[in-house]
């Protein structure tokens, strides 16, 4: 159940950044979780709401973007969508595929509320 410890590290990171920016509350967090990142987005959402309890991120809307995987063929260089770590090049049938995207795991943005300017 690594989603819980990951959710907690996300909360630590967004709270630290919000406080540095002078935010008193975090109302939104946008994550990028590639389809091949090894993270269950649904499970992460559930853990996130638990992990934010009692912090300035409590109640923040969590939006998770899930980019698809892309593989690149080591033989012919073709790029094509992949859903798993093993794939066959649709052009030359090679199995020497390198994943070039879909493993992203980023905190993209946070939306903070500031005390009246």
């Amino acid at each position: 159940m690594h989603e819980m410890s990951i959710a907690m590290s996300i909360v630590d990171a967004v709270v630290a950044n919000a406080e540095k920016e002078g935010g008193v509350r975090i109302s939104g967090v946008e994550l990028l979780v590639g389809k091949l990142a090894g993270i269950e987005a649904e499970s992460l959402k559930f853990c996130f709401s638990a992990a934010t309890k009692g912090t300035i991120a409590e109640g923040a809307a969590l939006v998770i973007g899930e980019p698809e995987g892309t593989g690149e063929c080591g033989e012919c260089g073709m790029r094509f969508p992949v859903t798993f770590y093993y794939a066959e090049c649709p052009k030359c049938r090679s199995l020497r595929i390198t994943i070039v995207s879909g493993e992203e795991f980023l905190i993209q943005t946070i939306t903070i509320e500031e005390e009246g300017e």
């Binding site: 990171a13 980023l106 943005t109 005390e115």
Partner: peptide
């Protein structure tokens, strides 16, 4: 208004 969006582009596992 008083809410502000900050772009972090920070790896979730950055600390680790």
């Amino acid at each position: 208004g008083t809410s502000r969006k900050i772009v972090l582009e920070q790896d979730v596992l950055q600390q680790n």
